Each structure stands twice: as C-alpha cells, then as structure tokens.
Simulated assay, not measured.
Amino acid sequence: MRCPFCSHEDSQVKDSRPTEDGSAIRRRRQCEDCGARFTTFERAQLRELTVAKSGNRREPFDRAKLERSLAIACRKRPVPPERIERLVSSIQRQLETTGDSEITSEMIGELVMDGLKALDPVAYIRFASVYKDFREARDFEAFAGSVGELGRE
C-alpha cells in the first residue's frame, strides 16, 4: 500500500480488525520509509458498478461520493456516523445484488431517500430538496406536508 505522506510503495500492517458492522477490515499501517502511520479499509466488492446518469453519461460507482452526500444531509443532526456508514453499506449491498452492473442515478437516489426517511426526517427533507430540485419555498412546504402526513398514519 502506498504511503499517503511520502508516496513510498511499501507499508507494513501493524493491526487488523473488522469494523463494527463487520462490512470491512480496518488496517493500521506504517510506512517502511518515513515511519508515518495511517489507516486503510478493505471491503468486499461483489461487482463493478457503473452509474448511468442523465445525458447518457456513465461513471463508476463511488462509495465515497455516497458517504459525502449522506454526511451533508445529516450535518448537525443527531445521527451517529456509524448509522450513516451502515446505511451506505446497505445501499451498496442492495445495488450490488440487483444482478445488473449498470445502475441508474435515480435508483441510488430512491434508495437514499428510503434510508434517510427511516433515519432522520430533517436529513430526508434536506436530501430531497437537492434530489428533487426544489426551486422555491412552496416546494419545501408541499414536500414537508406530505412527509408529515406519512408520519401520522
């Protein structure tokens, strides 16, 4: 593994352990050249996923991009980082088990919406405001009203 500090090619694994949810292996490494320590994570990947975006664009699925989107939606909310990590792992697992190597950005968006609805209502509305492209306050009111009605059922 290349050192992120000095770019030396070799590092030594000092400690390995599973993450809390068991979806990855956390490894503490030390660079053999500069001695710096850093952490890496290894995850099982069932298949290479390609995301079909609007305008016929294609790009590889990026787990980090999904994590950032969820972290932004949950910013300053009482949502522990472990819950976000579990949601990201769950969404990725659902996408990988569809049987298709190409998925749509809409499919990802809907899975995120479903996950956030169960996780935190404010984060759900925040994400929806970007995903559904709210243009004015009325859009927020209409969506929040429909969310409120769902909660009363």
Rank of each mutant, 00 (worst) to 15 (best):
A137W: 02
C34W: 05
R27A: 03
K117G: 11
S54Y: 04
L111Y: 03
G148E: 09
A36D: 15
A118K: 13
A123E: 03
R126E: 07
V51N: 12
T104Q: 05
P60R: 11
A118G: 11
K53F: 02
F143D: 01
A118S: 09
D139S: 00
Q30T: 11
S89I: 02
E136A: 01
Y131S: 04
R37N: 14
I91Y: 05
I91H: 07
R43Y: 13
E67R: 12
L95H: 09
E20D: 15
G109A: 06
T98E: 11
A142L: 03
A118L: 11
V112H: 03
A73S: 15
L46R: 14
R83G: 00
D120L: 03
R26L: 06
L150A: 13
V112I: 13
A144C: 04
L49M: 07
F127D: 08
F140K: 01
I125P: 01
R57T: 09
R86H: 06
S11E: 13
A128P: 02
R135K: 08
N56E: 14
R43G: 13
M107A: 14
E96R: 02
L66S: 13
A36H: 15
S23F: 07
T19K: 07
R86Q: 13
E85N: 12
T98D: 12
D139K: 04
P78T: 02
M107H: 09
R28Q: 13
G99V: 04
G145Y: 02
A144M: 07
E110W: 00
T39R: 14
E67H: 10
G35L: 09
F61H: 12
G55M: 05
D33Y: 08
T19Q: 11
V88W: 04
R63V: 11
A64S: 15
K117N: 10
N56D: 15
S129I: 02
A73C: 10
V112L: 06
V51Y: 07
R43T: 11
L111M: 11
K117T: 04
I125L: 10
S69C: 13
K132N: 00
P121I: 03
S16D: 10
S146T: 06
D133V: 03
E82L: 12
V130S: 00
G99I: 01
R75T: 12
A123T: 06
Q92A: 13
T97W: 06
D15W: 07
K14R: 15
R86M: 08
L87P: 10
F5L: 12
V147K: 00
C74N: 10
E106N: 04
R17V: 08
T39C: 13
K65N: 08
S146N: 06
D15F: 04
S7A: 09
R17T: 11
I108M: 01
F127P: 06
R93W: 09
L66E: 13
K76T: 12
R26Y: 00
T97Y: 01
G35N: 14
S54K: 15
D21Y: 04
S90Y: 10
